[in-house]
Design a protein around this nucleic acid. Structure first.
Lengths: 303, 303
DNA sequence: TTGTATGCGTTATCAT
DNA sequence: ATGATAACGCATACAA
Protein backbone atom coordinates (compact mmCIF):
# COMPACT_ATOMS: atom_id res chain seq x y z
CA UNK A 1 0.00 0.00 0.00
CA UNK A 2 2.23 2.80 -1.17
CA UNK A 3 0.28 6.06 -1.15
CA UNK A 4 -2.91 5.29 -2.88
CA UNK A 5 -5.86 7.62 -2.81
CA UNK A 6 -7.28 7.54 0.67
CA UNK A 7 -5.79 6.03 3.77
CA UNK A 8 -6.71 6.66 7.35
CA UNK A 9 -3.96 7.88 9.60
CA UNK A 10 -4.49 4.84 11.76
CA UNK A 11 -3.94 2.20 9.12
CA UNK A 12 -1.08 4.18 7.66
CA UNK A 13 0.74 3.93 10.96
CA UNK A 14 -0.03 0.25 11.24
CA UNK A 15 1.36 -0.36 7.77
CA UNK A 16 4.47 1.68 8.42
CA UNK A 17 5.13 -0.28 11.58
CA UNK A 18 4.74 -3.53 9.72
CA UNK A 19 7.13 -2.33 7.04
CA UNK A 20 9.78 -1.68 9.63
CA UNK A 21 9.16 -4.82 11.60
CA UNK A 22 9.37 -7.10 8.58
CA UNK A 23 12.06 -5.00 6.87
CA UNK A 24 9.74 -5.04 3.92
CA UNK A 25 11.22 -4.09 0.58
CA UNK A 26 9.08 -4.16 -2.56
CA UNK A 27 10.05 -6.86 -5.01
CA UNK A 28 11.23 -5.08 -8.13
CA UNK A 29 10.90 -8.21 -10.20
CA UNK A 30 7.19 -8.45 -9.54
CA UNK A 31 6.88 -4.73 -10.05
CA UNK A 32 8.66 -4.91 -13.37
CA UNK A 33 6.50 -7.77 -14.53
CA UNK A 34 3.44 -5.72 -13.92
CA UNK A 35 4.67 -2.33 -15.04
CA UNK A 36 6.72 -3.60 -17.98
CA UNK A 37 9.55 -1.37 -16.87
CA UNK A 38 12.72 -2.71 -15.33
CA UNK A 39 14.58 0.57 -14.86
CA UNK A 40 17.64 -1.23 -16.12
CA UNK A 41 19.81 -0.10 -19.00
CA UNK A 42 22.05 -2.50 -20.87
CA UNK A 43 25.56 -1.31 -21.65
CA UNK A 44 27.68 -3.17 -24.17
CA UNK A 45 31.31 -2.11 -24.51
CA UNK A 46 34.15 -3.76 -26.42
CA UNK A 47 36.48 -3.51 -23.43
CA UNK A 48 36.18 -2.61 -19.80
CA UNK A 49 39.84 -1.98 -19.11
CA UNK A 50 40.44 0.40 -21.98
CA UNK A 51 40.51 3.77 -20.23
CA UNK A 52 38.26 5.40 -22.78
CA UNK A 53 35.44 2.96 -22.12
CA UNK A 54 36.32 2.82 -18.48
CA UNK A 55 35.71 6.54 -18.10
CA UNK A 56 32.61 6.22 -20.21
CA UNK A 57 31.23 3.48 -17.97
CA UNK A 58 31.92 5.57 -14.89
CA UNK A 59 30.02 8.55 -16.27
CA UNK A 60 27.20 6.48 -17.71
CA UNK A 61 26.67 4.72 -14.40
CA UNK A 62 26.61 8.03 -12.59
CA UNK A 63 24.18 9.59 -15.02
CA UNK A 64 21.98 6.50 -15.15
CA UNK A 65 21.69 6.50 -11.37
CA UNK A 66 20.57 10.12 -11.48
CA UNK A 67 17.75 9.07 -13.80
CA UNK A 68 16.93 6.09 -11.56
CA UNK A 69 18.26 3.52 -13.97
CA UNK A 70 20.66 0.70 -13.17
CA UNK A 71 23.37 -0.55 -15.46
CA UNK A 72 23.75 -4.12 -16.66
CA UNK A 73 27.32 -4.32 -17.88
CA UNK A 74 28.39 -6.43 -20.86
CA UNK A 75 31.81 -6.80 -22.44
CA UNK A 76 31.62 -7.80 -26.08
CA UNK A 77 35.38 -7.92 -26.45
CA UNK A 78 34.79 -6.78 -30.05
CA UNK A 79 33.38 -10.20 -30.89
CA UNK A 80 30.36 -10.07 -33.12
CA UNK A 81 28.76 -13.19 -31.70
CA UNK A 82 29.15 -11.96 -28.13
CA UNK A 83 27.43 -8.73 -29.09
CA UNK A 84 24.55 -10.71 -30.50
CA UNK A 85 24.30 -12.93 -27.45
CA UNK A 86 24.32 -9.95 -25.14
CA UNK A 87 21.73 -8.17 -27.24
CA UNK A 88 19.42 -11.16 -27.02
CA UNK A 89 20.06 -11.54 -23.33
CA UNK A 90 19.23 -7.89 -22.71
CA UNK A 91 16.05 -8.32 -24.68
CA UNK A 92 15.03 -11.35 -22.61
CA UNK A 93 15.77 -9.38 -19.48
CA UNK A 94 13.51 -6.62 -20.75
CA UNK A 95 15.95 -3.78 -20.17
CA UNK A 96 14.41 -0.39 -20.85
CA UNK A 97 17.19 0.67 -23.20
CA UNK A 98 20.59 -0.22 -24.56
CA UNK A 99 23.82 1.70 -25.06
CA UNK A 100 26.29 0.00 -27.31
CA UNK A 101 29.90 1.07 -27.81
CA UNK A 102 31.46 0.82 -31.23
CA UNK A 103 30.84 -2.62 -32.63
CA UNK A 104 30.44 -4.92 -35.57
CA UNK A 105 27.86 -4.07 -38.22
CA UNK A 106 26.19 -7.49 -38.07
CA UNK A 107 24.34 -6.55 -34.90
CA UNK A 108 21.83 -4.55 -36.88
CA UNK A 109 19.62 -7.58 -37.36
CA UNK A 110 19.53 -8.23 -33.64
CA UNK A 111 18.23 -4.82 -32.83
CA UNK A 112 14.53 -4.62 -32.29
CA UNK A 113 12.33 -1.61 -32.59
CA UNK A 114 10.79 -2.30 -29.22
CA UNK A 115 13.98 -1.52 -27.32
CA UNK A 116 15.48 1.97 -27.50
CA UNK A 117 19.16 1.96 -28.38
CA UNK A 118 21.93 4.49 -28.85
CA UNK A 119 25.40 3.85 -30.20
CA UNK A 120 28.82 5.30 -29.63
CA UNK A 121 30.97 5.93 -32.66
CA UNK A 122 28.86 4.09 -35.17
CA UNK A 123 26.12 5.05 -37.56
CA UNK A 124 23.88 2.00 -37.75
CA UNK A 125 20.74 3.28 -39.38
CA UNK A 126 18.58 6.30 -39.98
CA UNK A 127 16.55 5.94 -36.83
CA UNK A 128 19.27 4.82 -34.47
CA UNK A 129 20.81 7.80 -32.68
CA UNK A 130 24.57 7.90 -32.36
CA UNK A 131 27.03 9.82 -30.28
CA UNK A 132 30.52 10.65 -31.35
CA UNK A 133 33.18 13.30 -31.14
CA UNK A 134 34.05 15.53 -34.07
CA UNK A 135 36.64 13.13 -35.40
CA UNK A 136 36.99 15.00 -38.61
CA UNK A 137 37.91 18.21 -36.86
CA UNK A 138 40.17 16.36 -34.42
CA UNK A 139 42.16 14.77 -37.21
CA UNK A 140 42.54 18.11 -38.90
CA UNK A 141 43.71 19.85 -35.72
CA UNK A 142 46.28 17.13 -35.09
CA UNK A 143 47.68 17.36 -38.60
CA UNK A 144 47.85 21.12 -38.54
CA UNK A 145 49.74 21.10 -35.26
CA UNK A 146 52.38 18.68 -36.51
CA UNK A 147 52.78 20.64 -39.74
CA UNK A 148 53.04 23.90 -37.82
CA UNK A 149 55.71 22.39 -35.59
CA UNK A 150 57.74 21.62 -38.67
CA UNK A 151 57.15 17.91 -39.16
CA UNK A 152 57.89 16.71 -42.69
CA UNK A 153 57.60 12.95 -42.46
CA UNK A 154 54.42 12.16 -40.67
CA UNK A 155 52.78 8.90 -39.62
CA UNK A 156 49.51 7.78 -38.17
CA UNK A 157 48.79 4.58 -36.29
CA UNK A 158 45.20 3.60 -36.87
CA UNK A 159 43.04 0.76 -35.66
CA UNK A 160 41.32 -1.35 -38.26
CA UNK A 161 40.26 1.11 -40.93
CA UNK A 162 38.11 -1.53 -42.62
CA UNK A 163 35.59 -1.22 -39.82
CA UNK A 164 33.03 1.43 -40.52
CA UNK A 165 33.65 3.22 -37.25
CA UNK A 166 33.10 6.92 -37.02
CA UNK A 167 36.35 7.11 -35.09
CA UNK A 168 38.17 6.17 -38.26
CA UNK A 169 37.15 9.48 -39.78
CA UNK A 170 39.83 11.15 -37.70
CA UNK A 171 42.51 9.42 -39.76
CA UNK A 172 40.90 10.23 -43.09
CA UNK A 173 40.78 13.83 -42.09
CA UNK A 174 44.31 13.73 -40.68
CA UNK A 175 45.74 12.24 -43.88
CA UNK A 176 43.89 14.70 -46.07
CA UNK A 177 45.17 17.64 -44.08
CA UNK A 178 48.75 16.37 -44.16
CA UNK A 179 48.56 15.93 -47.91
CA UNK A 180 47.06 19.36 -48.30
CA UNK A 181 50.27 20.70 -46.81
CA UNK A 182 52.34 18.59 -49.17
CA UNK A 183 53.84 16.45 -46.45
CA UNK A 184 54.19 12.72 -46.58
CA UNK A 185 51.90 10.54 -44.49
CA UNK A 186 52.78 7.01 -43.53
CA UNK A 187 49.76 4.92 -42.55
CA UNK A 188 50.02 1.92 -40.27
CA UNK A 189 47.01 -0.05 -39.20
CA UNK A 190 46.38 -3.11 -37.11
CA UNK A 191 44.62 -6.07 -38.53
CA UNK A 192 43.24 -6.90 -35.11
CA UNK A 193 40.14 -5.07 -34.03
CA UNK A 194 40.71 -5.75 -30.36
CA UNK A 195 42.52 -3.64 -27.84
CA UNK A 196 45.64 -5.63 -27.39
CA UNK A 197 48.07 -3.51 -25.46
CA UNK A 198 50.81 -6.06 -26.03
CA UNK A 199 50.46 -5.70 -29.75
CA UNK A 200 50.90 -1.95 -29.87
CA UNK A 201 54.62 -2.22 -29.31
CA UNK A 202 54.96 -4.49 -32.33
CA UNK A 203 53.30 -1.87 -34.46
CA UNK A 204 55.57 0.76 -33.07
CA UNK A 205 58.66 -1.29 -33.75
CA UNK A 206 57.41 -1.90 -37.25
CA UNK A 207 57.05 1.82 -37.73
CA UNK A 208 60.61 2.61 -36.76
CA UNK A 209 61.88 -0.33 -38.72
CA UNK A 210 60.15 0.79 -41.90
CA UNK A 211 60.93 4.45 -41.65
CA UNK A 212 62.98 5.76 -38.78
CA UNK A 213 62.93 9.31 -40.10
CA UNK A 214 59.37 9.80 -38.97
CA UNK A 215 59.26 13.08 -37.09
CA UNK A 216 55.57 13.36 -36.20
CA UNK A 217 52.92 10.86 -35.29
CA UNK A 218 49.19 10.75 -34.59
CA UNK A 219 47.59 7.86 -32.69
CA UNK A 220 45.21 7.04 -29.86
CA UNK A 221 46.27 8.02 -26.34
CA UNK A 222 46.57 4.41 -25.28
CA UNK A 223 48.93 3.65 -28.13
CA UNK A 224 50.78 6.87 -27.39
CA UNK A 225 51.42 5.74 -23.84
CA UNK A 226 53.00 2.60 -25.21
CA UNK A 227 54.95 4.56 -27.80
CA UNK A 228 56.34 7.00 -25.25
CA UNK A 229 57.46 4.13 -23.07
CA UNK A 230 59.17 2.57 -26.08
CA UNK A 231 60.86 5.85 -26.97
CA UNK A 232 62.17 6.27 -23.45
CA UNK A 233 63.69 2.82 -23.47
CA UNK A 234 65.19 3.34 -26.91
CA UNK A 235 66.44 6.84 -26.15
CA UNK A 236 64.33 8.52 -28.80
CA UNK A 237 63.96 12.11 -27.68
CA UNK A 238 60.46 13.48 -27.38
CA UNK A 239 59.51 16.01 -28.70
CA UNK A 240 62.90 16.89 -30.16
CA UNK A 241 63.32 13.94 -32.52
CA UNK A 242 59.70 12.88 -32.68
CA UNK A 243 56.50 14.78 -31.99
CA UNK A 244 53.52 12.85 -30.73
CA UNK A 245 49.86 13.78 -30.61
CA UNK A 246 47.19 11.53 -29.19
CA UNK A 247 43.42 11.34 -29.30
CA UNK A 248 40.99 10.99 -26.37
CA UNK A 249 42.68 12.70 -23.43
CA UNK A 250 42.33 9.75 -21.12
CA UNK A 251 43.35 10.38 -17.53
CA UNK A 252 46.81 8.88 -18.02
CA UNK A 253 47.66 11.31 -20.80
CA UNK A 254 48.85 13.88 -18.29
CA UNK A 255 51.08 11.41 -16.49
CA UNK A 256 53.29 10.31 -19.37
CA UNK A 257 56.85 11.58 -19.73
CA UNK A 258 56.63 14.03 -21.23
CA UNK A 259 52.93 14.68 -20.71
CA UNK A 260 50.99 13.91 -23.85
CA UNK A 261 49.62 16.49 -26.23
CA UNK A 262 46.26 15.22 -27.35
CA UNK A 263 42.84 15.88 -28.83
CA UNK A 264 40.32 15.73 -26.02
CA UNK A 265 36.86 14.35 -26.44
CA UNK A 266 34.49 15.10 -23.63
CA UNK A 267 33.57 11.66 -22.43
CA UNK A 268 31.47 13.11 -19.66
CA UNK A 269 29.28 15.28 -21.87
CA UNK A 270 28.88 12.46 -24.35
CA UNK A 271 27.80 10.10 -21.59
CA UNK A 272 25.31 12.58 -20.21
CA UNK A 273 23.87 12.94 -23.68
CA UNK A 274 23.65 9.19 -24.14
CA UNK A 275 21.55 8.75 -21.04
CA UNK A 276 19.45 11.80 -21.86
CA UNK A 277 18.65 10.47 -25.31
CA UNK A 278 17.89 7.01 -24.07
CA UNK A 279 15.65 8.35 -21.34
CA UNK A 280 13.79 10.47 -23.85
CA UNK A 281 13.35 7.54 -26.21
CA UNK A 282 12.05 5.41 -23.37
CA UNK A 283 9.52 8.12 -22.59
CA UNK A 284 8.47 8.34 -26.20
CA UNK A 285 9.99 11.73 -26.89
CA UNK A 286 11.68 12.77 -30.11
CA UNK A 287 15.48 12.74 -30.08
CA UNK A 288 18.25 13.96 -32.30
CA UNK A 289 19.84 11.21 -34.36
CA UNK A 290 23.26 12.74 -34.91
CA UNK A 291 25.14 13.91 -31.86
CA UNK A 292 28.63 15.09 -32.67
CA UNK A 293 30.61 16.64 -29.84
CA UNK A 294 33.36 19.21 -30.30
CA UNK A 295 36.94 18.27 -29.57
CA UNK A 296 39.63 20.35 -27.98
CA UNK A 297 43.37 20.50 -28.45
CA UNK A 298 45.28 19.92 -25.22
CA UNK A 299 48.83 21.11 -25.61
CA UNK A 300 51.34 19.34 -23.39
CA UNK A 301 54.90 18.18 -23.70
CA UNK A 302 55.09 15.80 -26.63
CA UNK A 303 54.87 18.39 -29.35
CA UNK B 1 6.98 -25.38 -23.82
CA UNK B 2 10.67 -25.90 -23.34
CA UNK B 3 11.42 -29.62 -23.17
CA UNK B 4 8.96 -31.00 -20.74
CA UNK B 5 8.37 -34.70 -20.37
CA UNK B 6 6.61 -35.91 -23.48
CA UNK B 7 6.06 -34.06 -26.69
CA UNK B 8 5.06 -35.45 -30.04
CA UNK B 9 7.37 -34.69 -32.93
CA UNK B 10 4.52 -32.98 -34.68
CA UNK B 11 3.70 -30.43 -32.01
CA UNK B 12 7.39 -29.86 -31.36
CA UNK B 13 7.81 -28.74 -34.95
CA UNK B 14 4.76 -26.55 -34.77
CA UNK B 15 6.06 -24.89 -31.65
CA UNK B 16 9.50 -24.37 -33.10
CA UNK B 17 8.01 -22.73 -36.14
CA UNK B 18 5.96 -20.42 -34.01
CA UNK B 19 9.03 -19.48 -31.97
CA UNK B 20 10.82 -18.41 -35.10
CA UNK B 21 7.89 -16.67 -36.65
CA UNK B 22 7.14 -14.57 -33.59
CA UNK B 23 10.81 -14.21 -32.65
CA UNK B 24 9.75 -15.46 -29.27
CA UNK B 25 12.15 -14.90 -26.41
CA UNK B 26 11.27 -16.02 -22.91
CA UNK B 27 10.65 -13.17 -20.51
CA UNK B 28 13.34 -13.46 -17.86
CA UNK B 29 11.42 -11.20 -15.51
CA UNK B 30 8.48 -13.56 -15.35
CA UNK B 31 10.87 -16.46 -15.10
CA UNK B 32 12.69 -14.84 -12.22
CA UNK B 33 9.48 -14.08 -10.41
CA UNK B 34 8.52 -17.69 -10.51
CA UNK B 35 11.92 -19.30 -9.98
CA UNK B 36 13.16 -16.76 -7.44
CA UNK B 37 16.45 -16.61 -9.30
CA UNK B 38 17.48 -13.60 -11.35
CA UNK B 39 20.90 -14.81 -12.47
CA UNK B 40 22.13 -11.34 -11.72
CA UNK B 41 25.04 -10.47 -9.45
CA UNK B 42 25.40 -7.03 -7.91
CA UNK B 43 28.85 -5.50 -7.96
CA UNK B 44 29.63 -2.49 -5.79
CA UNK B 45 32.99 -0.80 -6.28
CA UNK B 46 34.28 2.48 -4.87
CA UNK B 47 35.49 3.63 -8.28
CA UNK B 48 35.13 2.47 -11.84
CA UNK B 49 38.01 4.41 -13.32
CA UNK B 50 40.62 3.31 -10.84
CA UNK B 51 42.59 0.75 -12.83
CA UNK B 52 42.62 -1.76 -10.00
CA UNK B 53 38.84 -1.94 -9.87
CA UNK B 54 38.62 -1.54 -13.59
CA UNK B 55 40.62 -4.70 -14.14
CA UNK B 56 38.64 -6.39 -11.42
CA UNK B 57 35.36 -5.50 -13.10
CA UNK B 58 36.64 -6.80 -16.42
CA UNK B 59 37.56 -10.16 -14.93
CA UNK B 60 34.46 -10.43 -12.77
CA UNK B 61 32.22 -9.76 -15.74
CA UNK B 62 34.05 -12.36 -17.76
CA UNK B 63 33.86 -14.96 -15.05
CA UNK B 64 30.24 -14.16 -14.19
CA UNK B 65 29.25 -14.65 -17.82
CA UNK B 66 30.91 -18.08 -17.78
CA UNK B 67 28.68 -19.01 -14.86
CA UNK B 68 25.62 -17.56 -16.65
CA UNK B 69 25.33 -14.58 -14.35
CA UNK B 70 24.98 -10.97 -15.40
CA UNK B 71 26.54 -8.03 -13.60
CA UNK B 72 24.65 -5.05 -12.22
CA UNK B 73 27.30 -2.40 -11.75
CA UNK B 74 27.26 0.10 -8.89
CA UNK B 75 29.76 2.81 -8.03
CA UNK B 76 29.70 3.71 -4.36
CA UNK B 77 32.37 6.37 -4.75
CA UNK B 78 33.45 5.44 -1.21
CA UNK B 79 30.33 7.05 0.16
CA UNK B 80 28.73 5.11 2.95
CA UNK B 81 25.20 6.20 2.14
CA UNK B 82 25.58 5.27 -1.50
CA UNK B 83 26.72 1.82 -0.49
CA UNK B 84 23.64 1.45 1.65
CA UNK B 85 21.33 2.65 -1.09
CA UNK B 86 22.89 0.29 -3.59
CA UNK B 87 22.68 -2.58 -1.16
CA UNK B 88 18.99 -1.95 -0.65
CA UNK B 89 18.42 -1.54 -4.35
CA UNK B 90 20.15 -4.84 -5.08
CA UNK B 91 18.01 -6.50 -2.45
CA UNK B 92 14.83 -5.13 -4.02
CA UNK B 93 16.02 -6.33 -7.40
CA UNK B 94 16.53 -9.77 -5.91
CA UNK B 95 20.07 -10.27 -7.22
CA UNK B 96 21.39 -13.75 -6.53
CA UNK B 97 24.57 -12.46 -4.89
CA UNK B 98 26.67 -9.41 -4.19
CA UNK B 99 30.34 -8.60 -4.52
CA UNK B 100 31.42 -5.51 -2.69
CA UNK B 101 34.81 -3.83 -3.02
CA UNK B 102 36.46 -2.29 0.00
CA UNK B 103 33.99 -0.09 1.78
CA UNK B 104 32.76 1.54 4.91
CA UNK B 105 32.03 -0.60 7.97
CA UNK B 106 28.51 0.76 8.44
CA UNK B 107 27.18 -1.42 5.66
CA UNK B 108 27.15 -4.42 7.93
CA UNK B 109 23.63 -3.65 9.10
CA UNK B 110 22.39 -3.52 5.53
CA UNK B 111 23.60 -6.97 4.74
CA UNK B 112 20.99 -9.65 4.95
CA UNK B 113 21.53 -13.33 5.45
CA UNK B 114 19.27 -14.11 2.54
CA UNK B 115 21.65 -12.69 -0.02
CA UNK B 116 25.11 -14.24 -0.45
CA UNK B 117 27.90 -11.68 -0.35
CA UNK B 118 31.66 -11.64 -0.66
CA UNK B 119 33.96 -8.71 -0.01
CA UNK B 120 37.26 -7.52 -1.38
CA UNK B 121 39.84 -6.30 1.09
CA UNK B 122 37.60 -6.18 4.11
CA UNK B 123 36.79 -8.52 6.94
CA UNK B 124 33.18 -7.77 7.82
CA UNK B 125 32.14 -10.71 9.94
CA UNK B 126 32.81 -14.32 10.74
CA UNK B 127 30.49 -15.69 8.10
CA UNK B 128 31.16 -13.22 5.32
CA UNK B 129 33.89 -14.52 3.04
CA UNK B 130 36.56 -12.09 1.94
CA UNK B 131 39.17 -12.01 -0.75
CA UNK B 132 42.43 -10.16 -0.49
CA UNK B 133 46.07 -10.32 -1.46
CA UNK B 134 48.78 -11.15 1.02
CA UNK B 135 49.25 -7.53 1.99
CA UNK B 136 51.44 -8.40 4.90
CA UNK B 137 53.90 -10.28 2.73
CA UNK B 138 53.74 -7.59 0.06
CA UNK B 139 54.65 -4.85 2.50
CA UNK B 140 57.52 -6.92 3.80
CA UNK B 141 58.87 -7.64 0.32
CA UNK B 142 58.71 -3.97 -0.60
CA UNK B 143 60.59 -2.90 2.52
CA UNK B 144 63.23 -5.55 2.10
CA UNK B 145 63.89 -4.51 -1.46
CA UNK B 146 64.37 -0.86 -0.58
CA UNK B 147 66.64 -1.77 2.33
CA UNK B 148 68.61 -4.13 0.14
CA UNK B 149 69.04 -1.40 -2.46
CA UNK B 150 70.60 0.78 0.21
CA UNK B 151 67.79 3.15 1.12
CA UNK B 152 68.21 4.81 4.51
CA UNK B 153 65.42 7.33 4.65
CA UNK B 154 62.27 5.62 3.62
CA UNK B 155 58.69 6.82 3.20
CA UNK B 156 55.33 5.30 2.52
CA UNK B 157 52.27 7.01 1.12
CA UNK B 158 49.17 5.35 2.46
CA UNK B 159 45.48 5.88 1.97
CA UNK B 160 43.39 6.48 5.04
CA UNK B 161 44.84 4.18 7.67
CA UNK B 162 41.88 4.80 9.95
CA UNK B 163 39.74 2.64 7.73
CA UNK B 164 39.87 -0.98 8.71
CA UNK B 165 40.83 -2.14 5.24
CA UNK B 166 42.90 -5.25 4.82
CA UNK B 167 44.93 -3.34 2.26
CA UNK B 168 46.23 -1.17 5.05
CA UNK B 169 48.06 -4.18 6.48
CA UNK B 170 50.65 -3.75 3.77
CA UNK B 171 51.79 -0.50 5.37
CA UNK B 172 51.90 -1.92 8.88
CA UNK B 173 54.04 -4.73 7.63
CA UNK B 174 56.18 -2.36 5.55
CA UNK B 175 56.83 -0.07 8.48
CA UNK B 176 57.65 -2.95 10.80
CA UNK B 177 60.12 -4.37 8.37
CA UNK B 178 61.82 -1.03 7.82
CA UNK B 179 62.15 -0.53 11.55
CA UNK B 180 63.51 -4.03 11.96
CA UNK B 181 66.37 -2.95 9.72
CA UNK B 182 66.91 0.18 11.80
CA UNK B 183 65.96 2.54 9.02
CA UNK B 184 63.70 5.52 9.39
CA UNK B 185 60.17 5.41 7.99
CA UNK B 186 58.21 8.50 7.18
CA UNK B 187 54.46 7.91 6.99
CA UNK B 188 52.15 10.12 4.97
CA UNK B 189 48.47 9.45 4.68
CA UNK B 190 45.55 11.09 3.00
CA UNK B 191 42.60 12.24 4.98
CA UNK B 192 40.37 11.62 2.01
CA UNK B 193 39.23 8.09 1.43
CA UNK B 194 38.40 8.69 -2.19
CA UNK B 195 40.57 8.19 -5.20
CA UNK B 196 41.33 11.73 -6.11
CA UNK B 197 44.08 11.66 -8.65
CA UNK B 198 44.45 15.42 -8.45
CA UNK B 199 45.19 15.20 -4.78
CA UNK B 200 48.05 12.77 -5.06
CA UNK B 201 50.37 15.44 -6.34
CA UNK B 202 49.72 17.57 -3.26
CA UNK B 203 50.74 14.68 -1.06
CA UNK B 204 53.85 14.18 -3.09
CA UNK B 205 54.79 17.82 -2.88
CA UNK B 206 54.21 17.69 0.83
CA UNK B 207 56.55 14.76 1.08
CA UNK B 208 59.41 16.51 -0.65
CA UNK B 209 58.74 19.67 1.23
CA UNK B 210 58.90 17.93 4.60
CA UNK B 211 61.87 15.75 3.89
CA UNK B 212 63.63 15.95 0.58
CA UNK B 213 66.25 13.43 1.55
CA UNK B 214 63.83 10.55 1.16
CA UNK B 215 65.58 7.94 -0.93
CA UNK B 216 63.00 5.19 -1.08
CA UNK B 217 59.21 5.14 -1.22
CA UNK B 218 56.37 2.64 -1.15
CA UNK B 219 52.89 3.52 -2.43
CA UNK B 220 50.08 2.28 -4.65
CA UNK B 221 50.77 2.01 -8.37
CA UNK B 222 48.34 4.77 -9.17
CA UNK B 223 50.06 7.15 -6.80
CA UNK B 224 53.40 6.00 -8.16
CA UNK B 225 52.37 6.98 -11.67
CA UNK B 226 51.64 10.44 -10.39
CA UNK B 227 54.89 10.53 -8.41
CA UNK B 228 57.00 9.50 -11.39
CA UNK B 229 55.40 12.17 -13.50
CA UNK B 230 56.17 14.70 -10.78
CA UNK B 231 59.77 13.52 -10.52
CA UNK B 232 60.26 13.82 -14.26
CA UNK B 233 59.01 17.37 -14.26
CA UNK B 234 61.10 18.28 -11.25
CA UNK B 235 64.20 16.53 -12.51
CA UNK B 236 64.40 14.08 -9.65
CA UNK B 237 66.34 11.13 -10.96
CA UNK B 238 64.73 7.73 -10.66
CA UNK B 239 66.04 5.33 -9.41
CA UNK B 240 69.32 7.11 -8.73
CA UNK B 241 68.11 9.71 -6.27
CA UNK B 242 64.85 8.05 -5.30
CA UNK B 243 63.75 4.44 -5.49
CA UNK B 244 60.06 3.72 -5.96
CA UNK B 245 58.09 0.56 -5.41
CA UNK B 246 54.37 0.29 -6.08
CA UNK B 247 51.60 -2.12 -5.18
CA UNK B 248 49.05 -3.73 -7.53
CA UNK B 249 50.81 -4.07 -10.89
CA UNK B 250 48.08 -2.33 -12.81
CA UNK B 251 48.52 -2.38 -16.57
CA UNK B 252 50.04 1.10 -16.67
CA UNK B 253 52.86 0.11 -14.33
CA UNK B 254 54.92 -1.18 -17.23
CA UNK B 255 54.47 2.02 -19.23
CA UNK B 256 55.87 4.54 -16.78
CA UNK B 257 59.32 6.05 -17.23
CA UNK B 258 61.14 4.24 -15.93
CA UNK B 259 58.85 1.20 -15.76
CA UNK B 260 57.58 0.70 -12.25
CA UNK B 261 58.86 -1.94 -9.85
CA UNK B 262 55.84 -3.19 -7.98
CA UNK B 263 54.16 -5.86 -5.90
CA UNK B 264 51.70 -7.67 -8.13
CA UNK B 265 48.41 -8.99 -6.90
CA UNK B 266 46.66 -11.36 -9.23
CA UNK B 267 43.44 -9.55 -9.91
CA UNK B 268 42.36 -12.26 -12.31
CA UNK B 269 42.73 -15.14 -9.87
CA UNK B 270 41.04 -13.15 -7.14
CA UNK B 271 38.12 -12.36 -9.41
CA UNK B 272 37.75 -15.98 -10.46
CA UNK B 273 37.69 -16.94 -6.81
CA UNK B 274 35.09 -14.30 -5.99
CA UNK B 275 32.66 -15.64 -8.56
CA UNK B 276 33.39 -19.22 -7.59
CA UNK B 277 32.65 -18.51 -3.94
CA UNK B 278 29.52 -16.58 -4.70
CA UNK B 279 28.26 -19.30 -7.02
CA UNK B 280 28.89 -21.90 -4.36
CA UNK B 281 27.10 -19.87 -1.73
CA UNK B 282 24.15 -19.41 -4.05
CA UNK B 283 24.03 -23.15 -4.51
CA UNK B 284 24.16 -23.74 -0.80
CA UNK B 285 27.66 -25.15 -0.70
CA UNK B 286 30.23 -24.51 1.98
CA UNK B 287 32.89 -21.95 1.16
CA UNK B 288 36.16 -20.79 2.65
CA UNK B 289 35.86 -17.54 4.56
CA UNK B 290 39.43 -16.31 4.28
CA UNK B 291 40.92 -16.14 0.82
CA UNK B 292 44.35 -14.58 0.80
CA UNK B 293 46.21 -14.62 -2.49
CA UNK B 294 50.00 -14.61 -2.83
CA UNK B 295 51.74 -11.54 -4.19
CA UNK B 296 54.74 -11.38 -6.48
CA UNK B 297 57.58 -8.91 -6.78
CA UNK B 298 57.87 -7.46 -10.28
CA UNK B 299 61.29 -5.89 -10.69
CA UNK B 300 61.40 -3.07 -13.20
CA UNK B 301 63.22 0.21 -13.53
CA UNK B 302 62.34 2.32 -10.51
CA UNK B 303 64.51 0.47 -8.03
C1' DT C 1 -11.98 4.56 3.26
C1' DT C 2 -11.03 -0.38 2.63
C1' DG C 3 -11.21 -5.24 0.82
C1' DT C 4 -11.06 -8.20 -3.19
C1' DA C 5 -10.41 -9.89 -7.81
C1' DT C 6 -7.57 -9.81 -11.90
C1' DG C 7 -3.49 -9.90 -14.82
C1' DC C 8 1.62 -9.35 -15.89
C1' DG C 9 4.53 -14.19 -18.37
C1' DT C 10 6.37 -18.04 -16.77
C1' DT C 11 6.63 -22.81 -14.83
C1' DA C 12 4.87 -26.79 -12.26
C1' DT C 13 1.27 -29.60 -11.01
C1' DC C 14 -2.74 -31.90 -11.70
C1' DA C 15 -6.35 -33.64 -14.78
C1' DT C 16 -7.69 -35.17 -18.99
C1' DA D 1 0.72 -36.82 -24.76
C1' DT D 2 -1.65 -32.56 -23.88
C1' DG D 3 -4.66 -28.99 -21.90
C1' DA D 4 -6.09 -26.39 -17.83
C1' DT D 5 -4.94 -24.02 -13.56
C1' DA D 6 -2.48 -22.09 -9.70
C1' DA D 7 1.23 -19.43 -7.97
C1' DC D 8 5.35 -16.09 -7.92
C1' DG D 9 4.55 -10.46 -5.73
C1' DC D 10 2.78 -6.47 -7.14
C1' DA D 11 -0.57 -2.77 -8.81
C1' DT D 12 -4.74 -1.54 -10.71
C1' DA D 13 -9.68 -1.39 -11.00
C1' DC D 14 -13.75 -2.20 -9.04
C1' DA D 15 -16.91 -3.44 -5.39
C1' DA D 16 -18.18 -2.96 -0.75
Amino acid sequence: MNNRGYISAETRLKVEKAIKKLKYQPNEIARSLFSKKTNILGLIVPSIIHPFFCEMIQHLEHEATKHRYKILLCNSNFESNKEQEYLEMLRRHKVDGIIIGSHTPEVLQYITKDCPLVTFDRRLGKNIPYITSDNSHGGQLAAELLIQKGCKNIACLAGNLELDLLSNERFESFINTVHKHNAHCHIIQTDANVFNFEKYVTMIEELFHTDDDVDGIFLSDMMAIDLLSYCFQNKIQIPKKLKVIGYDDIIYAKFTTPPLTTIKQSIEEMSIKAIEILDNMINGKKVQMQNVFPVEMILRGTT
